[in-house]
Amino acid sequence: MTALHRFPVKSCSGEELDAAEVEPWGLAGDRHWMLVDPSGETVTARAHPRMLLMRPRLSGDGLVVSAPERADLDDLEVATPQGPLTDVTVFGRAPFAAALADDSAHAWFSDLLDTPVRLVHADDPRRRHANPAYAGPNVPMAFADGYPLNVGSLASLAELNRLIAEGPRAAEGGLEMVRFRPNLVVDGEAPWAEDGWRRIRVGEVVFRVVKGCDRCAVPATDHRTAERFKEPTATLARHRRWDGAVWFGVQLVPDSPATGAVLRVGDEVEVLEAEVAPDGPPR
Rank of each mutant, 00 (worst) to 15 (best):
E23N: 07
P24S: 02
W25D: 00
W25Y: 11
A28D: 12
A28W: 08
A28K: 14
D30T: 06
R31H: 08
H32I: 06
W33K: 00
V36Y: 07
D37W: 01
P38V: 05
P38K: 01
G40Y: 05
E41D: 14
A45N: 03
A45V: 00
A47T: 15
P49C: 12
P49R: 04
R50C: 08
L53N: 01
R55E: 14
R55K: 15
R55P: 02
P56E: 02
R57K: 13
L58P: 01
L58H: 15
G60Q: 11
G60F: 08
G60T: 12
D61P: 03
G62N: 08
G62R: 02
L63C: 08
V64E: 15
V64K: 11
E69H: 14
R70Y: 14
A71E: 14
D72L: 14
L73C: 03
L73V: 14
L73I: 13
D74S: 13
D74E: 15
D74K: 10
L76N: 05
L76G: 06
E77K: 11
P81I: 09
P81T: 12
Q82T: 14
Q82S: 15
Q82K: 15
G83S: 11
G83Q: 10
L85A: 14
T86M: 13
D87G: 08
T89K: 13
V90P: 10
F91Y: 14
G92C: 06
G92L: 06
F96W: 11
A99N: 08
A101L: 04
D102L: 08
D103G: 13
S104G: 10
S104Q: 09
A105V: 00
A107Q: 10
W108R: 06
F109R: 01
D111Q: 13
L112Q: 11
L113D: 02
T115Y: 03
V117W: 00
R118N: 00
L119V: 00
L119S: 06
L119G: 07
V120I: 06
V120E: 04
H121L: 04
H121I: 01
A122N: 02
D124L: 02
D124Q: 05
P125M: 01
P125T: 02
R126W: 12
R128Y: 07
R128I: 00
H129C: 10
A130L: 05
N131L: 11
P132L: 11
Y134L: 14
Y134E: 12
P137K: 02
P137G: 04
N138F: 09
N138Q: 13
V139F: 04
P140F: 00
P140Y: 04
P140N: 07
A142P: 00
F143L: 05
D145W: 07
G146M: 13
P148V: 04
L149Q: 08
N150W: 00
V151F: 07
G152I: 10
S153Y: 02
A155F: 06
L157V: 12
L157T: 08
E159W: 12
E159Q: 12
L160N: 04
L160Q: 04
L160D: 01
N161R: 09
R162T: 11
R162K: 09
L163V: 12
A165P: 02
